[in-house]
Amino acid sequence: MHLHVGCTLQFEAQDNTPVIFMLRPRSGSGQWIISEEYEIMPHVPVTEFTDRYGNLCQRLVAPAGPFSVRTAATVQTNDTIDVAHGAPFVPIEDLPDDVLHFLLPSRYCQSDQLGELAADITATVETPGYDQAEAIRRWINQNIRYEYGTSDASTSAIDTAAHRVGVCRDFTHLGMALCRSLNIPARMVVGYLHELKPMDLHAWFEAYIDGRWYTFDATQTEPKGNRVTVAYGRDAADVAFTTQFGPMLLNTMEVWVKAAEQ
C-alpha cells in the first residue's frame, strides 16, 4: 500500500532554542520513500546528520515566538509483517557486533531486573527465539491495560510491569526489557501505523532472531503491516521526535496516515 503520512507540530519558544528533530523516514526494510515535504515557519537554517542508528536528524535554532514544523511523505509499505514461529535464538557469540548493544539494560529498559518475569512468561515455550518474543508480546497485550494519561516521560519498564497500565511507549519498553533479559536483542521503533486508533505517532519493538529483525507490537492483537518507520534506538531516549535545549512549549500536534492513490 502507498501511504501518505505526516505531522504538524506548533511550538512557542521563549527564547532562541536549539532543537534536534527526528521526523524524516528513510527508505529501508519494508518501506520506500516516494516523495516528501518538510516545511518550517518561520524559515531558519537547518542542517541534517545521521545518528549512530541510521536515523535522519534535523538540527536548527528555533527563534523566540511561534514556530511550526510540518512534515509529510508518500511511502510504499508492506501490507503484512513477517511472522516466523519456531525461528531460532541466535547465540550471543554469533551476534553481529552492531547488534550487541541492544542486549544491554538502558534508561527505560531495566532488563537486568526482569529476568524472573520473562522466565515465567516464556516457561512453556519449547523453542528459544521467535516464540519467546511472541509470548512476551502476547502477554503484554493481554495483561497490560492501554490507557492515556497513566504514564509520563519518566515511566520505565519496571514501572509498567508493576502498575500494569500504559501506552505504546510503555508496552514497547517492557517488551524490549523482557526480551533482553532472555538475551534476545531488542530495539525500539517509532513511526506511523495505518488505521491506528486514536491516530498518533506510534511505537513498537523489533527483536533480532535467526539472523534478522522481526516486528512485534504489543498494542495490537495480531500482526499488522502498513507501518512507516521514522527512527530506531535502544529506548525512548534515542528516538525522541523533538529534543529541545531550552524552554519551548508544544501547543498542538496533528498526525495523519492515509491511503494514497497509486
Rank of each mutant, 00 (worst) to 15 (best):
F49L: 13
D112W: 08
F67T: 05
A73S: 14
E12G: 11
E39F: 05
C57S: 10
V90P: 01
Y53G: 00
E116A: 12
I40V: 15
A123P: 00
Q14M: 15
Q76M: 09
W32G: 07
E37S: 14
S35Y: 02
P128S: 10
G54H: 06
L114M: 07
Q113I: 03
N16E: 15
L23K: 08
Q110T: 09
I33W: 03
M41P: 00
A62M: 09
C57E: 11
L23G: 08
Q14D: 15
T124S: 14
F11Y: 15
M41S: 12
A87C: 08
S27P: 06
G129P: 02
L104H: 13
P18Q: 09
S111K: 05
D120V: 04
H43Y: 09
E93V: 05
T127F: 03
D112S: 14
Q14V: 12
C109T: 14
P105I: 05
T17H: 11
A87Y: 01
P18F: 11
V125D: 01
E93S: 09
G129T: 03
G115L: 04
R70S: 12
R107S: 13
Y108M: 11
D15F: 07
I121S: 06
R107F: 14
Q31K: 05
F21G: 00
L9H: 04
A62N: 03
E93N: 13
Y38C: 11
V69E: 05
M22I: 04
E48M: 13
V83F: 01
A13K: 10
R26Y: 07
F102N: 03
P25E: 06
G129R: 02
T71H: 14
I33L: 15
P25Q: 03
A119N: 08
T77K: 10
S68Q: 12
A62F: 02
E37Q: 13
A13W: 08
S35W: 07
Y38V: 02
A72I: 02
V99Q: 04
V44I: 10
T124M: 09
Q76H: 10
P88I: 05
S106I: 07
P25K: 06
V83C: 08
E48H: 11
Q113D: 12
A62Q: 00
M22F: 00
A119H: 08
F21V: 00
R59F: 12
I92R: 15
P128L: 09
A87Q: 02
